[in-house]
Write a protein that binds this DNA or RNA. Structure first.
Lengths: 206, 206
DNA sequence: TGTTAGTTAAACTCTACGGTGTAATTAATC
DNA sequence: GATTAATTACACCGTAGAGTTTAACTAACA
């Protein structure tokens, strides 16, 4: 009930934030294991003790980094059905959202680090992801709307969404992680082909 | 020209092999960073010094593990076109090969470790993979054969192969890595849907 | 201007691990 | 059975990093 508890007299949120950003930088450069708390303190221009005053442990600090990363991610996936636009354009918008998320240089490095940590402890990965909304949800809603609008024939929207994201992740997300990002132009033929493939499967046969 | 050089008097290949297997076990359990040479020596029932007599360094030993893993992988991808069988069945065979490779318990753990190492050093990953045949090659040959046999209409076989593997990897490979494998039965509807989707795109319209 | 939460620097502890050196021991080959 | 390549046990080196301690310092707020 008290926004400014008496135990904390000063506002340290700026320092907190800058340590977090320093940590993002160092984790991105070095990965989790090779990132050192000393280096994070250096980069942030802060004493190591201060880092430990703000975050209990390296693990704890990394959790904060993950949280920030996944919250940003969640925002950019909202695309609503628009009856005025073509199926191709709207599905391309979904694909482009994915492409943007994985391909922006500021996120790509951290995506790699997260992936390499998550893949080493998949139960922890699942727990972490469970805190956030299912990433397929917006597309599922879109598919239902397209079906109701008589533009696509979708009996099983969650299954169709899995098909779509299987293609997108297989074609964009994972290749981007294993290369230095994806060249937007050179991926276009494959992206178009995927969307045609998807629409061909679910179009209304006249 | 000399199969048994004079500098090496005894056959130590069995010990070599068992160290390699111990290393596979420990790397699988602990990941690269957390695997220790002491533990590998322990597990193999061999002195640490002997490990270093057979492998120059931890890095070197890990390379040997990778090589063994990828060589096994390469063998299981050969599927030839058979005009007597349906498209569905043959494409399912390609998908099943992938499913087997990723899903067999003895390989899954090591796949995770490899992935987490490769994703941390993608140039090294690319160099390593360059030593092995392109994993799409057998499918490309199959697609060309199906086209020639007038069963599918494939203008651009490499592109179609990318579409196929994008779907398979997005639907099977990556989910398997991030779960405790894939339940073969529960994945079947999605696999069938993917293959129908693929065939619908490239079928010959009568 | 005095109080004190928050910060700093630096030395320090503890643990872990990669890799080496060595002298003694084992066992395959002659 | 002698030779010697291979192995073993074990102490050892150097490095590195997580987290702590302490005493001095700084600046926000009363």
């Amino acid at each position: 009930m008290n926004d400014t508890p008496r135990t904390k007299k000063r506002d340290t949120s700026r320092k907190h934030e800058s340590i977090l950003n320093g940590a993002i930088q160092v984790f991105t450069e070095m990965g989790y294991d090779n990132a050192s708390m000393d280096r994070i303190a250096d980069v942030t221009d802060v004493s190591k003790r201060t880092v430990y005053n703000h975050f209990l442990s390296k693990e704890n600090l990394f959790q904060a980094v993950i949280a920030k990363f996944l919250e940003e991610q969640q925002i950019l996936k909202q695309i609503d059905y628009d009856p005025a636009k073509s199926m191709e354009d709207q599905l391309t918008a979904f694909a482009n959202a994915e492409l943007f998320l994985i391909n922006s240089p500021s996120r790509l490095g951290l995506s790699r680090v997260l992936t390499s940590v998550f893949i080493r402890d998949i139960d922890y990965a699942r727990m972490t992801r469970a805190k956030y909304a299912s990433p397929h949800e917006p597309l599922i809603k879109w598919l239902i709307a397209a079906h109701v609008d008589n533009k696509l024939h979708i009996d099983n929207p969650p299954l169709a969404a899995r098909v779509f994201y299987a293609m997108i992740e297989g074609a964009l997300t994972w290749p981007a992680l294993f290369q230095h990002g994806i060249n937007t132009d050179s991926i276009k033929p494959l992206m178009d082909e995927l969307i045609i493939t998807f629409i061909t499967r679910y179009r209304i046969v006249v």
